[in-house]
């Protein structure tokens, strides 16, 4: 692998890295956007749904709201787990091969 930046970004290893990082980021972002905007659109169009009671003291909206909060945190955790496990080793492999040349 040469040290010319154009050559690096066109190398198959780098392209694979970018494609994987981008697909993970895009999928996780779309999940977050979809869930959040889904939540507020349900709020806007069907208030009754989230206001209906499961048992006294617990409406449907409360566990759903809690779920959105936990999901936001869970998705960041998932990303950290993936990046520490897969992404960093791919980055290191490319860095190594750059150093060898």
């Amino acid at each position: 692998m040469s040290k010319d930046p154009d050559a690096i970004i066109n190398s198959p290893e780098f392209k694979a890295l970018v494609a994987r990082q981008w697909s993970v980021s895009a999928v996780l972002s779309i999940i977050m956007l979809g869930v959040y905007f889904g939540f507020i659109l349900v709020l806007a169009f069907d208030k009754g749904l989230l206001g209906s009671m499961i048992t006294p003291g617990l409406s449907v909206g409360i566990p759903i709201g809690l779920f959105v909060i936990l999901l936001a945190w869970g998705l960041t955790g998932l990303y950290v787990y993936w990046a520490n496990d897969k992404y960093d080793s791919a980055v290191n492999a490319i860095r190594q091969s750059l150093r060898r040349n």
């Binding site: 977050m32 959105v68 960041t76």
Partner: peptide, 11 residues
């Protein structure tokens, strides 16, 4: 609403 921006910062 104030929380969901954080995952976007991450990704």
């Amino acid at each position: 609403g104030f929380l969901v921006g954080w995952p976007i910062i991450m990704f």
